[in-house]
């Protein structure tokens, strides 16, 4: 029925294979339903996920490869959600990484079932979300922006930003300040003075 499929569009479709996976308990922010799907979790029209516990992988090293092969090329985003549930992880993780790479899959690691569940939820919830939160500038107020810029200079902290701002009044005044004026600021020691001054006064590039 169309009503049902409409509802299912907003839900994660879970393969019957995942029945009994305690991870399902942690998918709470979106709806999920069992369905006949070839992947473990169908997250959208073009994205899907396979769940892999490292412990399981150690017992069945070929499992992942066969599951990926089943997927064929139907999805743009093919996530392998790797639950890191053993201590000695380097070697198995290397194998998983290699398999994922060679077969065009994106590997996401999670260290708890909660985290696994959260990845699935997030990918579903953010299905149509633009990437702007990745493009920097989450805070747009003046002080955050000023800190954002000034803290590129090593060891300059938020307190120093306030000190510099209140002492010099504006960013252009800070950038134009003499070494001595910088040194007079409380909390700004010799090395910070030098770093700040060099950042502002050394040329952007030295031609060789």
């Amino acid at each position: 029925s169309s009503v049902q499929s409409g509802q299912n569009r907003n839900a994660i479709l879970v393969s019957h294979r995942q029945k009994g996976n305690p991870l399902l308990k942690y998918i709470r922010n979106v709806r999920w339903v069992f369905a006949d799907v070839v992947c473990d979790y169908l997250l959208g029209p073009n994205s899907c996920a396979l769940y892999l516990s490292v412990r399981y992988h150690l017992l069945h090293p070929d499992y992942l490869y066969f599951r990926i092969r089943e997927l064929q090329k139907n999805f743009k985003l093919r996530v392998i959600l790797c639950h890191v549930d053993v201590e000695d992880v380097v070697k198995p993780l290397q194998e998983v990484t290699r398999t994922a790479m060679l077969h065009d899959c994106t590997l996401l690691c999670a260290w708890s079932l909660e985290e696994c569940g959260r990845y699935l939820e997030t990918i579903k919830v953010y299905e149509n979300k633009p990437a702007d939160i990745l493009q920097g500038q989450t805070d747009t107020d003046y002080l955050s922006r000023l800190s954002h810029a000034l803290t590129t200079v090593r060891h300059v902290n938020k307190t120093d930003v306030v000190t510099l701002g209140s002492t010099f009044g504006s960013l252009s005044n800070i950038m134009d300040a003499s070494m001595e004026d910088l040194a007079r600021c409380p909390g700004i020691g010799e090395r910070k003075v030098k770093r700040l001054y060099d950042t502002f006064h050394e040329p952007f590039k030295h031609d060789v």
């Binding site: 996530v79 790479m101 065009d104 994106t106 590997l107 996401l108 997030t122 953010y126 979300k129 990437a131």
Partner: peptide, 13 residues
């Protein structure tokens, strides 16, 4: 999550 969704070809190691 957003990163891998916007760049499905990106491989994470």
């Amino acid at each position: 999550s957003l990163l891998v969704m916007h760049f499905p070809r990106l491989r994470l190691v």
